[in-house]
């Protein structure tokens, strides 16, 4: 992205700056009130032994004890490993398929509406239902997937997809990608609408075929969209929770445990508010580092 041109024409008037600030404030107030304040409130909490229910003995400051316990907990590190693996697997699967589907659907002339709606359907399925449906597909021993694979490969040894620690995370990846690619697809579709038709016409004159048109027109024009999609998908992936909480509770043997699930278990099941706050702060710092690094990397690619 090139630098903004120095604007000599506009004078920095009082009204202008008033309007700018006026447009910015509602969001800042809402974010401060509903996201930042509660998060900042959890910082002092993370140094205490606060529980959910009231206690007749006063809540104690316990220093860095929560942090020390978390960092020496093997489960926490396993959760970090799991979410990174999950992110690495889901980024190409989900974003790639979303882009592909968007490109095909964009220029589709016949049955346009029906096809788009069908491709969009998984995304509007409530997650609870998605997990119920996929649990029956992954079912062991008589699930649809096992029966299908066995029909194709008769000697196939049936697998307990969600109950085996080597396959559980991958199974969650496919379910998640199926459910959520609609999100990226819709955004790519909107991005594709912004590409001017003239660019394709010009490409056609220069004799560019389908693939070349994609590589030289579509892909570069989707740059800003792709940056958005990659950043958001990364954060969403690192925040993985709902599917895991319903389907595997982090098991078997912690192989699908995630950072948010770790925090949830401490806070909502163990009712250890202080401990849970500490783990959410650690999680924030970790994911923020990743996102910042990614943003700098994407920024470099942009220039």
């Amino acid at each position: 992205m090139r630098k903004e041109p120095k604007n000599k024409l506009s004078r920095f008037s009082l009204l202008e700056s008033f309007q700018e600030l006026g447009m910015l404030t509602p969001a800042l107030i809402l974010l401060a009130l509903f996201v930042m304040t509660p998060f900042i409130m959890s910082i002092p909490l993370s140094f205490t032994n606060q529980k959910l229910f009231p206690s007749p003995i006063p809540v104690k400051l316990i220093g860095l004890r929560n942090y020390r316990q978390i960092l020496s907990d093997g489960e926490f590190w396993q959760a970090i490993k799991n979410v990174f693996l999950f992110t690495l697997m889901i980024l190409p699967t989900q974003c790639g398929f979303a882009l592909l589907a968007a490109c095909f659907l964009n220029k589709q002339a016949i049955m346009k509406k029906t096809l788009r709606a069908m491709f969009f359907l998984p995304f509007i399925t409530p997650m609870v239902i998605v997990t119920v449906i996929w649990a029956t597909i992954y079912k062991y021993p008589t699930g649809l997937l096992n029966s299908f694979v066995q029909t194709v490969i008769p000697r196939f040894q049936m697998i307990d997809w969600l109950g085996n620690r080597h396959t559980a995370l991958t199974a969650i990846v496919f379910l998640s990608a199926w459910q959520a690619y609609g999100f990226q697809m819709v955004i790519y579709l909107a991005g594709l609408q912004n590409i001017p038709e003239e660019l394709y016409e010009a490409a056609a004159i220069d004799g560019a075929g389908g693939w070349k048109r994609f590589a030289y027109v579509t892909w570069p024009s989707l740059k800003n969209t792709t940056i958005f999609v990659l950043t958001i998908t990364t954060i969403q992936a690192l925040k993985l929770f709902t599917q895991v909480n319903i389907l595997t509770h982090g098991g078997p043997l912690g192989s699908t445990n995630t950072l948010v699930h770790y925090m949830y278990e401490a806070g909502f099941i163990g009712q250890k508010i202080g401990y849970s706050a500490a783990s959410s702060i650690l999680m924030f710092l970790l994911v923020f580092t990743v996102v910042l690094a990614q943003r700098l990397l994407l920024k470099r690619m942009e220039d």
Partner: peptide, 16 residues
């Protein structure tokens, strides 16, 4: 709350 969450986790892992 701590008792049940610690016990459940251990029992689940033992079965696994």
């Amino acid at each position: 709350p701590t008792i049940t969450s610690a016990f459940m986790k251990a029992f689940a892992n033992i079965l696994d």
